[in-house]
Nucleic acid binder design. Sequence first.
DNA 1: TAGATTGTTAATCGATTAACAATC
DNA 2: TAGATTGTTAATCGATTAACAATC
Lengths: 222, 222
Amino acid sequence: MTRRIPRATVARLPAYLRHLDSLGPGQQTVQSSDLASASGVNAAKVRKDLSYIGATGVRGVGYDVEELRNLILRRLGLSTDLTVVLIGAGNLGSALARYKGFDNRGFHIVSVYDIDPKRVGKRIAGIEIRHLDRLEEDLERNPADIGIIATPASEAQGVADRLIAAGIPGILNFAPTVIRVPPGATVRQVDLATELQILAFYLGSRRETGSTSSLPERWRSG
Amino acid sequence: MTRRIPRATVARLPAYLRHLDSLGPGQQTVQSSDLASASGVNAAKVRKDLSYIGATGVRGVGYDVEELRNLILRRLGLSTDLTVVLIGAGNLGSALARYKGFDNRGFHIVSVYDIDPKRVGKRIAGIEIRHLDRLEEDLERNPADIGIIATPASEAQGVADRLIAAGIPGILNFAPTVIRVPPGATVRQVDLATELQILAFYLGSRRETGSTSSLPERWRSG
DNA sequence: TAGATTGTTAATCGATTAACAATC
DNA sequence: TAGATTGTTAATCGATTAACAATC
């Protein structure tokens, strides 16, 4: 019954969810074409994605918004809230600790760790910064679902090893380095500078081909 | 000669670059297998990627580190530094303004904008926060290459429209909403909560299949 | 020459899309 | 019934990989 869900489909489900959340309470149904234009894909792909997760719509009508929303949440494993520990209370780590988009969507940062004595003991967004030495004992008492790494690159692999040894199955890594985890654990990598570098490539090719002049009138500069 | 470089290849070039940058000055050559293990892909794929950008190695030896580094930089359009404007000096925006990884890799944030009177006039990382009303006149005087959007979702599309009308060809969007740009312009989307949601899926399937017990000994918790 | 590693082919795999029958 | 939209097939496209000849 539940076939394997392709990676590319999983990566699009949050976008569908975001669109469903943006609809007013009056909107009881949604069409594949709506979801498609709201998430920048083809309508056929939306229907295929939804069929992978076992969603069924009504021909001539569309999909029930509430039902679809619940199904996506369930399939993503978000039926219950998840707890998160954050390692690294520097510049980026502090911003992540304060970021409202996590709590809003059911990800609760329960503790923040650092090794800098100037930071340990202070609070960010109401959460006390604890010394990284406490990580294992804390996690033994209160297991968490996800670890976010916002340390310098040099520390990232070591921190990841400790998180996984302490039973954390999933890591979101913001340090600009690839980290290795054993089978069964999962990492996702977000590298901010890499995003700009990829963007630079597409600007570069645009400049070379001189495609500025092919921009529609209203978009042209000057 | 220069064939089109596949999207997936472009997305991996920054990872190769990062590995080359991590090598000591003693390392004059690098093998496809090194690059592969450092960036989590197959060695054949590395060689294919490198052949797309026109890199040539020496059979039995490998690739020249310095030459390869320069070639990747050139192909990504990073031979010269790029200028960046940042819109939104809130929590995340401020962290991005202070993020050292941008400047280090040749992306210079030249100005920061906000509409909140409590923020306008203050400084982050030495850069004065200007009122968003000034955006167009500033960009006319000093064109920029990239705009980073770190506003609330509700403002993101409007800001993107203004950036593009003012001649900015590339946007990195951190607001949790899809933004549309005309052909010729490029957007990349980074949605922090989406990353956690995708991660949650893989934890979920792990829990269901009970694969904890298949983890190698040293990784098991407890 | 012997050993090593590239460069490329060909097979495979997975994702995307057009198109249309099914059916509300 | 007529109109609309799903669900799925089949074709296409693009990315990945094993394998090995080429060659330093």
